[in-house]
């Protein structure tokens, strides 16, 4: 493993398999039918993925539907058990343990104190019928706060930062538009200043103008707070706007990774070429 000073997290050989795998697909040289074993039908949702996230950078993950982006994010946030691989977080126990293998109590500790997650669908990230303020407090309570005054102060600060009018802070997100819900989710994820933020298709399904707002907000947060982020999207324009480096996923694996501009201007993998030329 690497404990490089600039690294926020490292992933090595991460895999998520749905199925029991057979002798054929256990041999990684044998070709699969996209991400499915032709013999035992095991789905290789994420297959041998390795990468580093640097401190303060925004790393993009791009790829078509079903390429394993969300599965990877859920593994990183411990929403889903991994089938294979290692995961090191520099901010946890000096980056020594493979955090994939920690007890659920310790994983929850990391989830509560080091990570923030913004889901594509706000339903997963928010309690729709609790006040927006309580939604933000949930993250703070989980991280150990027991002081109402402190939590509401943090709530005010972050709701204001994401442009939710403070006279609506006691309203539940179910009263809000999609863009506002997404902004409450971001405020919640940020509320205890996690060093790492995971964002999964946070602008999908939003109006273009609202999309621009949310993207601007993400950039601003990264500039101001220096949080390391992973941004998942299948929209190359968003990746181009936000991300320093980009990883292209195909059938659960990394097809290509590198500096975003280089990947977009001079794609090496034929899949990336198709992806890039189809939108240019």
């Amino acid at each position: 493993m690497s404990t490089h000073d600039n690294i926020a997290l490292s992933v090595r050989g991460a895999g998520k398999f749905y199925g029991d795998r057979c002798n054929y697909c256990r041999n990684e040289n044998n070709p699969l039918n996209n991400n499915i074993c032709p013999y035992c039908r095991t789905v290789f949702a994420v297959d041998d993925v390795s990468f580093d996230l640097y401190k303060g950078e925004i790393l993009g993950i791009v790829g078509e539907s079903g390429s394993g982006k969300s599965t990877l994010m859920k593994m990183l946030y411990f929403d889903q058990e991994r089938s294979a691989g290692e995961y090191y977080i520099t901010g946890y126990a000096e980056g020594v343990p493979n955090v994939f293998t920690l007890s659920s109590q310790h994983r929850r500790e990391i989830q509560n104190e080091i990570l923030g997650m913004v889901y594509q669908n706000p339903v997963y990230g928010l309690k729709m019928d609790f006040s927006s303020m309580s939604n933000i407090a949930e993250k703070l309570i989980a991280a150990g706060s027991r002081n109402v005054g402190e939590m509401t102060a943090a709530g005010d600060h972050f709701l204001d930062k994401v442009n939710i009018p403070l006279d609506r802070k006691f309203e539940p997100p179910e009263n809000f538009s999609g863009g506002m819900q997404q902004r409450v989710q971001i405020a919640k994820a940020l509320s205890n200043y996690p060093p790492i933020l995971l964002l999964d298709e946070v602008t999908t399904g939003l109006d273009v103008s609202v999309q621009a707002d949310v993207l601007e907000l993400i950039k601003e947060i990264q500039r101001e707070l220096g949080i390391s982020m992973i941004v998942v999207s299948h929209d190359l324009a968003i990746i181009r706007m936000l991300c320093d480096r980009t990883m292209v996923m195909l059938n659960g694996s990394v097809a290509e990774a590198g500096i975003t501009d280089q990947i977009l201007e001079d794609p090496k993998h034929h899949y990336t070429q198709q992806l890039v030329y189809s939108i240019l």
Partner: peptide, 14 residues
Amino acid sequence: ADKEYSGAWLRLFE
């Protein structure tokens, strides 16, 4: 099992 009681606190907070 995880002693994760945020939900109980959250109700009181709400």
